[in-house]
Amino acid sequence: MKRELPILIVGITGTIMFFQYFFAPAFQHAFQWFLPKGTYMDFFATSQDWVIVIGILALPLGIWSLLKANVNKLKVPGERFYSAVLLGGFLAMLISGIAGGRASLSAGSVFMTIFNTVLIPIQATIFSLLAFFIASAAYRAFRARSVLATILLLTAFIVMFRFMPLGPISTINLSAVSWILSVPNMAAKRAIYMGIALGATATAIKIILGIERTYMGRD
């Protein structure tokens, strides 16, 4: 029963959500019967809200996991420093947020100052690494070691020249780039999209029918 009940809930919920896609207004009418007169709730939006509520309920579990793992790492010499920084940052944000109350979300508060002057620049720094990693990954990918890699290299050059400010060179191959992007590139993307759509449908049907159960912690 411990296994069958979740599968039953998933099956029923999945079936309802599947049919509501095609018969949405009918489901909306049926949903209205359960609501007090004069009130209105959107069936699909409400079901999405439930997902958010479940996510919020799980948040304490995540925080507990984070704290437990890092408190344990305080005992490990090599990991101690990073865990101490994490726990210190966690406490600083927690205390400044609780102490400031609702005002902590207004500009100039300690909470927002830490957020804007520490966290945001750090995030931007990590994101900016992408520029360097694109260069290093492109170097490896574009080495002309085979026929396919050479075609990739040449195609990349044609497309790159379109977006570089090189005057007439940039405009000459406009039609070539347009063709590359809208014909072979688009054809490949659509083929992948189609595979993804069918694969996602197959997985969804497997979950609804109870064939796929790994996400519950077993095959």
Binding site: G55, A58, P60, L61, G62, S65, Y215, G217
Partner: peptide
């Protein structure tokens, strides 16, 4: 994601 955490731990 906290929900992913719970499922991953169980898996």
């Amino acid at each position: 994601d906290p929900v992913v955490l719970v499922v991953a731990q169980e898996t």
